[in-house]
Each structure stands twice: as C-alpha cells, then as structure tokens.
C-alpha cells in the first residue's frame, strides 16, 4: 500500500533545531579521469536554503560534480570549495544516493542511527523513532531492509539523512529507482522535511527538476559547462501541468539533446 503523505502535518510543525542555513560556493572546479577532462574552471554557487537541480546527459559529469562537493573524489585539483559562513564544509554535508545504501544487517532504526554509531557517539533513539514516524514508517523500527519495499527503504534513507541534521544535503538521483507514484510521494516528503536546508539534486528527469528546484541547471559539453539556468518562482513542490511548465520542459529536453519529432502544437 502506498503511504499517503500530507506535507502540512509533520514534525516540521515542531521546530527541530534546524542548523543555520549556509550557501556553498565552488570556484574553478576541475576533474579529470585518465586524461579526460570532465570539467575545468567550473563555478557553482548554491544559495542558502534553496533547491538546485542539476540536469545533464549521462556521463557529462554531474554526479562527479556532486561527489566533488561531497569530498568523495580523490585527486580533484584546483578546487576552491567554501561555505558562505567561512566555516569548514565537510562535516556539514549529508549525502543521499540513488541506492538507499541501507546496511542489510541493521534494522531500520539502526540504519538511521548509522552516523552516530560510526562516529562513536551515543545513539539518540527517540530522535530516530521521531524521524521514522515523519517518513511514515512508525512501527517499522525493527524491520530489516530486506523486508521493506523500495520506496520504504528510500524513506529510511531519507530519515537517515535527516538524522545527520546537516545544513547541506547532496542528492544523487535518490528518486530515480522508484516507480512514478512512490517517487511523487517521496519528492513531496523530501521537500517538506528538508525545508530550510541547501540542496543539490542531481537528476535525469527534467520534470522532477522543474517540480522540485528553485533553480535548474543543465550541464553540457566536454569539458562540461552550465547552460543558461532556469529560475523558478513559487515554492516547490510545484504543479508541472501548467503551460509555462510544459514550455520549460520542452526547453530542457532540447538542451538535453532530445529530438522532438512530433508536429508543432500536437
């Protein structure tokens, strides 16, 4: 059964010590693998407490860019990465991948508490159970990942990300392995629960980008650069069935190199 998620009634009603929002600035990023330059001299600014969605063809280097910001690329050079408040960035970034990355031997609750466990801190179980409830999985604290559906697993991953309570969240296609309905639900849930944080979302799906992003960027070329960005009004998640959204969708598809072989006005 698909959980219904109402964006208005969650723990966000009770303020949860949200860390001060910070922006992220990346200047002159360069990344090369085996002599192939993915990008060079790339600049990117993520404004505090906004969703930035990053689109691009496969292999253009958008995941690599995200990984670079996450500190997961060894050998990236000439990169200047800083937070808007001048404090160190790495300990203020949370990471969410396409795979849920749940440890199969840990229960849902213990997976959510993985960060504290890894850092050797006391595990705040009550907080973990609160987050489980927030993602609609109260009562499943002891469930092993294998007994959860794909959508449920990704919701546990979202709760784990929230547990880290970091002001910057980097998401690498976290919704792309889910079916359409589950994806829609999880997108709404993420927008609500991650509100106030600075998000970079890498995605393949132009509609997802338009639905969630305050800004949509397309990466293109070899080495890659950014095409002129789209800035979206109104707060996400926004309806995508409007004429202007349809036009933006067309524009993004064109930028992503999708041939449009249907007649004009169809």
């Amino acid at each position: 059964m698909l959980p219904t998620f109402n964006p208005t009634d969650t723990i966000t009603d009770s303020p949860t010590n949200l860390p001060g929002a910070i922006g992220v600035t990346l200047t002159g990023a360069r990344l090369a693998y085996d002599g192939i330059v993915l990008f060079d001299g790339l600049d990117l600014t993520l404004a505090a407490a906004t969703w930035t969605c990053l689109l691009g063809k496969s292999g253009v280097g958008k995941s690599s860019l995200l990984r670079l910001i996450a500190g997961l690329t060894a050998g990236a050079t000439a990169t200047d990465l800083s937070a808007s408040d001048g404090q160190p960035l790495p300990s203020r970034i949370a990471y969410m991948a396409q795979q849920d990355l749940l440890l199969p031997w840990l229960s849902a609750r213990d997976n959510i508490l993985l960060g504290s466990r890894l850092r050797g801190r006391k595990a705040p179980r009550d907080r973990a159970d609160e987050l489980l409830a927030a993602v609609g999985l109260s009562g499943r604290a002891h469930a092993l990942p294998a007994t959860l559906s794909g959508g449920e697993r990704q919701r546990v991953a979202l709760a784990r990300t929230l547990m880290e309570d970091r002001p910057v969240v980097l998401m690498d296609e976290p919704f792309s392995a889910l079916d359409a309905l589950t994806r829609h639900n999880l997108q709404d849930m993420s927008v609500t629960l991650l509100r106030g944080r600075t998000i970079l979302l890498v995605t393949h799906d132009p509609l997802e980008a338009l639905r969630l992003g305050d800004r949509v960027l397309v990466m293109d070329g070899e080495p890659a650069h950014f095409l002129p960005e789209i800035t979206l009004p109104r707060t996400p998640p926004r309806p995508t069935a409007t004429p202007e959204m349809a036009a933006l969708h067309q524009r993004l598809l064109a930028q992503l190199g999708v041939e449009q072989d249907w007649p004009e006005g169809a």
């Binding site: 795979q99 990355l101 440890l103």
Partner: peptide, 28 residues
C-alpha cells in the same frame, strides 16, 4: 559496496569505525 564507504565518509567515520561497523559485517 563502495556506496557504503562513500556514505560513511560523508558521516566522518574513522577507518576503524568503517572496518568495525561496515566492512566486517559486510564480509561475514
């Protein structure tokens, strides 16, 4: 799974913690 190692790194896990909590159980 390299994804687990990435995740642990973004959680500031020490090498020992990764071995103890992720690599060892994963190898069982």
């Amino acid at each position: 799974d390299p994804g687990w190692l990435d995740l642990a790194q973004t959680m500031q896990a020490s090498r020992w913690a990764v071995l103890r909590h992720i690599r060892m159980p994963a190898a069982l």
